[in-house]
Design a binder for these strands. Structure first.
Lengths: 110, 110
DNA sequence: GAACTATATCGTAATATTGCAATATAATAA
DNA sequence: TTATTATATTGCAATATTACGATATAGTTC
């Protein structure tokens, strides 16, 4: 016991929870916000932006990448990490949808 | 070591990551979707909807509640759980914002 | 009151995540 | 080639999460 029973849930539920999970750490939100704030994509100084050691940052970047939230391309010596708009669009869509459905509901609730 | 260094990050980053983290499990997404699908709020049969034991479901509900994503009100013997629209609105807003900012950017990226 | 129903909490085992020092890899610069 | 720089991987300790049986709590019904 202890392992998440992901197989028991639908692909759709797993897909959304994977995206959400990747954003479920302040360091990873900070990374997303940093990528959003820099205009050109001279990333790599993300490490300097965060109060964490380089291996830890690398690990967080890997998780964001695995979840499909960011993508990285090699830029000579450094690596250029960017937000993947598709993942953001998927999340935006998801919450828009929930919001709409909540709006349609009669408020005979809690 | 091993504990998340949440204190090192801004309140805003922690606030969003807390919401995202709460949605970072397929069971909790399934709960949200179930709450969304039932019209009147005769909850309590969430346990029957999920492939998990009652204590586990109760724990997931607690986490959603702690994060502010759902609220519950006692309805006689049972409990009526509902989505908290404010939390959804916050998330919707957050991703809308990111999406907009990404749109404004010149695509000199990855 | 006792029995029943719905939910929460406790305790604990299995697993996952977080963080970092040390080290590896790979490109660039000297 | 030998630094130097940028990033990734390994290994491991600390902590957190997930899951559930057993049990507690609290309301309902009889």
């Amino acid at each position: 016991m202890g392992a998440t029973k992901s197989e028991q849930f639908t692909k759709k539920h797993n897909a959304i929870s994977t995206l959400a999970k990747a954003l479920g750490h302040p360091a990873r939100i900070a990374i997303i916000e940093y990528l959003l704030s820099v205009d050109t994509c001279i990333c790599g100084d993300i490490v300097n932006e965060l109060p964490l050691a380089q291996p830890t940052v690398s690990q967080h970047l890997k998780e964001l990448k695995n979840a499909g939230l960011i993508k990285g391309s090699i830029e000579g010596n450094a690596i250029c990490y960017c937000i993947d708009e598709k993942a953001i669009a998927r999340l935006q869509n998801y919450f828009d949808n929930i919001s709409n459905k909540l709006g349609e509901k009669k408020n005979n609730c809690c």
